[in-house]
């Protein structure tokens, strides 16, 4: 296949040297079969070794290479150059502090993830000798979609609430908390509802649906947030009617 030229306008920022982000252009020969990430790697290897970006699996599952491409959140290893024009703008994911160039700060997300207790909670731990839980294909199907999140952060970048309210738990963390609430093996629903009912949680969502539109794995976090809202209301309402044994 014959190559063609494209210009990449990349947002650069080195906190030790730059007062503000700047744009740098690279015109390179590209293979039309390339993804956006292939072009960035080519620039890094052959043109400008100082360009900083994260990547690893190049098969859309490790979640490292999320960036803004032509103004939209994109998983760059999945995003074909053929779908872009002769000039491609690449910038760090929106709504995150920038560490350097195309690398953003993820610590906030990891704190949020921990808040939703994304693990199986049971009143009594099951012993290995008891074997696996029985879980029907239908029960498995209940939460499966929400377990597909690769933590790529595209949804935070698209979310209008995150933009205004940085402490908002956000689509991925809520979807993952909700995923455990829907899992037949889990008994931690009530614990997580307390988190979901708190400030900056499910009720902050304005249901703009942007998160689900950009999700590269079709997790549909907007549906998770909406379902979590509903359950949080039910849980809150029933807490007045049904006393919870032993939980004070």
């Amino acid at each position: 296949m014959s190559g063609s030229k494209k210009t990449f306008v990349i947002t650069r920022f080195d906190p030790d040297r730059d007062e503000a982000p700047r744009q740098q252009s690279y015109e390179i020969e590209v293979d039309p079969r390339w993804k956006v990430l292939d072009a960035l790697n080519h620039i890094k290897d052959e043109v400008d070794p100082s360009l900083s970006h994260r990547w690893s699996c190049r098969m859309a599952v490790c979640g490292s290479c999320g960036m803004m491409v032509d103004g939209k959140p994109s998983l760059t290893c999945k995003d074909s150059l053929a779908d872009h024009g002769d000039t491609v703008e690449v910038a760090p994911l929106a709504n995150f502090p920038v560490v350097r160039d195309l690398v953003v700060e993820l610590e906030g997300f990891l704190d949020k993830l921990k808040q939703v207790k994304p693990w199986i909670i049971r009143a009594k731990e099951r012993a290995v000798e008891e074997g696996t839980h029985r879980q029907s294909p239908a029960e498995h199907q209940e939460f499966k979609q929400f377990s597909m999140c690769i933590n790529c952060m595209l949804c935070y970048s698209a979310c209008p609430v995150v933009a205004n309210e940085p402490d908002f738990l956000g689509p991925a963390a809520i979807a993952l908390g909700h995923r455990y609430n829907l899992d037949s093996r889990d008994e931690g629903d009530h614990e997580r509802q307390e988190v979901f009912r708190g400030e900056g949680s499910v009720f902050s969502c304005s249901y703009a649906n942007e998160c689900s539109e950009v999700c590269p794995k079709n997790v549909d976090p907007a549906a998770a947030v909406n379902q979590a809202k509903f359950r949080a209301v039910i849980d809150w309402a029933t807490s007045f009617v049904v006393p919870r044994g032993g939980e004070g």
Binding site: I120, V128, T132, Q135, E139, K144, D183
Partner: peptide
Amino acid sequence: PRELTRLEHWGCPWSRNEDGSV
């Protein structure tokens, strides 16, 4: 089998047979 069972207890979404076994 013990290790994969542990992982099942920790939430790994193993695919299931109709009877709910792994």
